[in-house]
Design a binder for these strands. Structure first.
Lengths: 268, 268
DNA sequence: TATAAAGGTGAATCCGCAC
DNA sequence: AGTGCGGATTCACCTTTAT
């Protein structure tokens, strides 16, 4: 990261770097207090209750029918503690972190963030304008995902919030914690060679645009420990922020690299 | 509770009873598996540290009640585990529970609910149409509170969800998990003899109306372990549900009783 | 009476720097 | 660490008072 182009050096302000591997393994190799903004979209495969995962997401064999619900929650919590702690070390003392999740995982994540010393600034609701209905009519249409925005500690004095910039998303009035944004569909949604969605949870660029514009400035370094399809780096690049993405699955890394090269190509 | 009028007996379907005391002490004396619906509005543990003034120098009357103060996260968690466990015992096997909170407490509450075996059905967002702005412009306007709707266990087969009834709140289409409802203000807000709000966190009846209509039927027993100003019993009564409220503060109990007697009087 | 203007208020984790 | 001060900071309602 210390080799990443930086505005002070005159290099490209919007350069990026993608690491392949588990963020719990890679984050300790990055210099501490170097990221101004972190956006994290962690996995929440809690429904796989019969399977127990180690904190690094490798599966533990041979325990399919012996582990109860608590064991599954506990392993997810330990995984969450580890990656959040690794992120906290890399986060600058005047930086902030965003974590997105659904009701399956966000309560556990939020509780652990508080326990680790993060201080919540807002819980932002991504209000999906076109959510998938509950087909059986046995629950309410699940129309939101929650983003927790937090600073590094309670006594942290400085952090970036571009209040005036965010007003443009609310008719010139103070922006609220409810963001109405459509799902990532259509041309923006990346498809594989079979025309199927290439990543199951690709986030809309409009969401990352608001995250990055609100809580970072040009030239700042944005970090995404679960890069996935690469939306964070792609939007950071468009908004002249440097970025680092970490992604475990080599197929997603390839996808993100291709996507970022594509943006490069279309802009030249 | 076994003496409460019941539709099967031909008695008043919308009778209510209010207990004075701490719900952790009182709930164990109620028969188990007897409540069809629980609505809980526990203390949020806001941890307000200083006075806040509007730009015109007027002071914001924040929540500084002693009942909202906890010494630590751990003591709040322990309190939460105790009242939730007591509620779970009283909840019928085909019943559901709602818990409302803000980002200050809802993550801890949700995590504990999952640990205790509750199975989340929805996280409903109360989207306030008239929230208090962030006067200093240092965060987003905090425009929501979260309601967790959960059944008693993962394998619970039966619970009440009045899908068709809820469609009326969304132009005949499937109701979503975002509920736009104004704050409780104006004539609905109960004032004391000095004209000040009599309870710092009175909930709007429209909110309870949706909760009760969606997940209970006429004659069902609704339980509120933190009754406060009595909104839950008042709305339950209007919707022909039996109800039990538990409230620690005798002044709030008196307030709720007066409110419910008032409704009785105006309806006769 | 009707309309307009003025005032009040809401579950809020709400400033930053110099001395 | 405590104090003082300059400066930037608000939205949708409802109620009361004035015209």
């Amino acid at each position: 990261m210390q080799n990443l182009p930086c505005p002070q050096t005159g290099a490209d302000v919007s350069d990026y770097r993608i690491y392949t591997g588990n963020c719990i393994d890679i984050l300790p190799d990055l210099p501490e207090k170097s990221a101004g903004l972190i956006f994290a979209d962690p996995p929440y495969n809690l429904q796989l209750k019969q399977e127990l995962y180690r904190p690094n997401q490798t599966r533990v064999d041979g325990v399919d029918d012996t582990w109860d619900q608590f064991a599954s929650f506990e392993s997810y919590d330990e995984f969450t503690r580890q990656w959040l702690n690794a992120c906290r070390r890399v986060l600058a003392d005047d930086g902030t972190i965003w974590v997105i999740g659904s009701y399956h995982n966000i309560f556990r994540v939020g509780k652990i963030m508080m326990d680790l010393g993060f201080w919540i600034l807002n819980d932002v609701q991504w209000h999906k304008s076109n959510p998938m209905p509950n087909f059986r009519g046995v629950r309410f249409t699940n129309a939101t995902e929650t983003l927790i925005w937090a600073k590094k500690s309670e006594n942290q004095k400085k952090y970036t919030f571009n209040h005036q910039v965010m007003k443009q998303f609310n008719d010139g009035k103070q922006m609220t914690s409810v963001w109405q944004i459509p799902l990532c569909t259509g041309k923006e949604r990346i498809k594989d060679e079979n025309g199927k969605k290439a990543h199951s949870t690709q986030k809309p660029e409009a969401l990352l645009q608001r995250v990055i514009l609100s809580s970072s400035n040009e030239g700042d370094l944005v970090l995404d420990p679960f890069l996935g399809s690469g939306t964070t780096c792609a939007v950071a690049r468009k908004l002249n922020r440097r970025s680092i993405g970490i992604e475990q699955d080599p197929r997603y890394v390839e996808m993100a690299e291709h996507r970022l090269n594509g943006y490069l190509g279309s802009e030249q």
